[in-house]
Design a protein around this nucleic acid. Structure first.
Length: 204
DNA sequence: CAAACGATCGGCT
DNA sequence: GCCGATCGTTTGC
């Protein structure tokens, strides 16, 4: 029943719409036979060249941002604050550096492995597993070394599925992105989306 | 080559 | 609610 998202989903020119559409989809990893998965509950859109909060602002190409200029359908994973591995989905046709940051998921399977990877007691609330972009990457075993990994390749250890979860427009809330105060007027853009009422969202 | 800076988290008050 | 940790990336000298 679960269907893997295909090129058509990722290769669209409106990254803000893709960020909305990713809510309710299921992010899955399978490393060394260990499968972990969770439903996406919170996202943020980033878009070069005009968005100052985007690492590829002004279409700046560096070794790190090069992945974002590729055709949509792969992962952009980078290190934040020297500690946290933040997972993004690259979207849009080649040369349009657009990406969606996955900020939170609701755990669905492999919770026991998530507790291990997060180094949390089983008594800890499940919200602590995957709420927050650094936390969910750790829970799913995602790492900067996997940046550029395809989400479309049938052999990929990372992909996103459709589970037939229908979200009505009023089930989606929008607000400003977190931690981008340095981005001037772009900081006011409401390009952060979350499932209204979800317990698996960091700041409501 | 040196230095500043984060798309954060968790512990402590 | 506040604050410090921590290091790869980037930019400037």
């Amino acid at each position: 029943m679960p269907n893997r998202l295909t090129r058509d989903f990722y290769i669209r020119t409106d990254v803000v719409q893709v960020a909305r559409d990713l809510l309710g989809k299921v992010l899955v990893t399978r490393f060394d036979g260990i499968t972990t998965a969770g439903m996406i509950t919170e996202t943020e859109a980033y878009r070069a060249p005009d968005d100052r909060a985007c690492h590829a602002y002004g279409n700046r190409r560096t070794a790190r941002t090069e992945v974002m200029f590729q055709e949509g359908g792969s992962a952009y994973i980078y290190l934040c604050y020297g500690i946290h591995h933040l997972f993004n989905v690259v979207t849009a046709p080649e040369d349009q550096a657009h990406a969606v940051l996955i900020r939170a998921i609701e755990p669905i399977s492999g919770l026991e492995y998530m507790y291990q990877r997060r180094n949390l007691s089983v008594k800890a609330a499940p919200e602590r597993l995957t709420t927050g972009p650094g936390a969910l990457s750790q829970a799913l075993g995602l790492h900067t070394s996997q940046t550029g990994q395809s989400l479309l390749d049938p052999n990929s250890p990372v992909w996103i599925e459709e589970h037939g979860q229908e979200l009505q427009p009023d089930a989606i809330a929008a607000g400003t992105r977190i931690g981008v105060g340095y981005a001037g007027t772009c900081a006011a853009w409401e390009w952060r989306f979350w499932i209204r009422g979800s317990r698996f969202v960091r700041r409501r």
